[in-house]
């Protein structure tokens, strides 16, 4: 959560608090998690007025809103303007998902030349109006809480809404996926089968979904509270991964999250150094 750049909307008066769900550059998967709350959706609708949620209903209730859930990254000039309007109309802003909290998969553009991309992808690039970067919402306005995941976990979403309604802190711990793995009594895939796993540097929230099915973690929830990417990378190398593999592992849905971004850049820099040793590392001076 970064320092505020916009004023807070005042909490609106009235009976049920008002909820708004906003979409920026994203795939809609995180909003869908709210609709996916089938059993709990009625309960949600009883506790909070779903005032703006185009994916569910065209009916629009005017702001201001008590709680705004924001999905998607800031990727176009229009979105840059709109996110400030959302902030002004909202008492509390919660970003949901990897796009809104870290820029999402589309932030891969941030590592490249967008003009060049456009010329390759679009027949008429001149019709495209876009920013050079895809950035998280917190780069532009103050965010009250960031819920991670690609997509988010619906149980955590309900927890955030419930915490908001009951005026308490959401129970969304920042520890590693390993912690969830052990709480589920999983056998570690890294230790027992030598499968590379991003779990030790990844934020909890999925319930260690992939390791539960004997896969390594892909890092969908972004960096955990104190990620030591460098140490994990050393083990990945021992498991036979090369530098390009490591760059790819860190450059997925949370490529622009600072810890993952900085590490992939570091490795890339090392790869481009002409004097690098065969391992890709500099020889100790």
């Amino acid at each position: 959560m970064t320092a505020g750049k916009a004023t807070h909307g005042e909490p609106p008066a009235g009976s049920r608090p008002k909820l708004a769900v906003w979409k920026f550059s994203s795939c809609d998967g995180c909003q869908l998690s709210l609709l996916d709350c089938e059993d709990e959706l009625l309960e949600v609708a009883e506790a909070i007025e779903i005032a703006y949620f185009l994916e569910a209903t065209r009916a629009v209730v005017e702001g201001p809103y008590d709680l705004s859930l924001v999905e998607g990254s800031i990727t176009t000039p229009d979105e840059l303007e709109r996110i400030h309007q959302v902030r002004e109309a909202s008492h509390r802003v919660v970003t949901i998902g990897a796009c809104a909290t870290a820029g999402g998969i589309q932030a891969l553009r941030n590592f490249t030349d967008v003009e060049e991309y456009m010329s390759v992808v679009y027949a008429h690039p001149s019709f495209i109006s876009t920013l050079d970067t895809a950035t998280p919402v917190s780069d532009h306005v103050e965010v009250d809480f960031e819920l991670r995941g690609c997509p988010i976990n619906k149980i955590q979403l309900l927890e955030v809404i419930s915490a908001h309604l009951n005026e308490r802190r959401p129970e969304v711990p920042g520890h590693s996926v390993c912690t969830e793995c052990k709480l589920r009594l999983n056998v570690c895939v890294m230790v027992a089968s030598g499968t590379p796993c991003l779990g030790p540097v990844t934020h909890a929230g999925c319930g260690a979904l992939c390791p539960t099915f004997s896969r390594g973690c892909y890092g969908c929830f972004g960096p955990m509270e104190t990620p030591n990417t460098e140490s994990l990378e050393a083990s990945m190398e021992a498991l036979g991964l090369g530098d390009p593999d490591i760059v790819r592992m860190f450059r997925t849905y949370n490529a622009w999250a600072p810890a993952f971004r900085d590490h992939s850049r570091l490795v890339e820099l090392r790869m481009s150094e002409p004097a690098a040793s065969p391992t890709g590392r500099e020889d100790p001076a």
């Binding site: 590693s176 390993c178 030790p200 030591n228 140490s231 050393a234």
Partner: peptide, 13 residues
């Protein structure tokens, strides 16, 4: 500290 991941595995096992 340079090697430790603060992943909690040691304490939970």
């Amino acid at each position: 500290a340079r090697r430790c991941l603060t992943c909690t595995n040691c304490t939970l096992v």
